[in-house]
Amino acid sequence: MKVVVIGGTGLIGSKLVARLGEHGHEAVAAAPNTGVNTLTGQGLAEVLEGAAVVVDVSNSPSFADEAVMEFFRTSTTNLLDYSEKAGVDHYVALSVVGTDRLSESGYFRAKIAQEELIRGAGRPYSIVHATQFFEFVRGIADLSTVDGKVLLPPVLFQPIASDDVAAGVGRVAVGQPLNGIREIGGPQQFRLDELVRKALAAKDDPREVVTDERARYSGARIGERTLLPGPDAELGETTLGEWLARQ
Rank of each mutant, 00 (worst) to 15 (best):
A64N: 11
V165I: 15
R123G: 14
E66Y: 01
T145S: 01
F136S: 12
V209L: 02
A141Y: 14
A161G: 12
G175N: 09
A52V: 01
V97A: 07
G24I: 00
V210W: 09
T76V: 02
D56W: 09
F136M: 12
T239N: 12
F63D: 13
V55R: 12
L44G: 06
V53I: 00
G180N: 11
A166E: 06
V174Y: 11
A220E: 11
L156Y: 10
F63W: 15
V137K: 03
L79K: 05
D232M: 01
G120K: 02
T238K: 04
L244H: 01
I184K: 04
V68W: 06
L117K: 07
E46F: 02
D56I: 00
P159L: 13
I184Q: 05
V28G: 12
V47Q: 09
V165M: 08
I6V: 14
G219N: 10
A141S: 14
V3S: 05
T239K: 12
E213W: 08
L143F: 15
S75H: 04
G120E: 05
R171N: 06
V92I: 07
D56G: 08
T211V: 15
R19L: 12
G87C: 07
R138M: 01
D100E: 15
A161D: 15
V53Q: 00
A27V: 12
Y125S: 10
V128N: 14
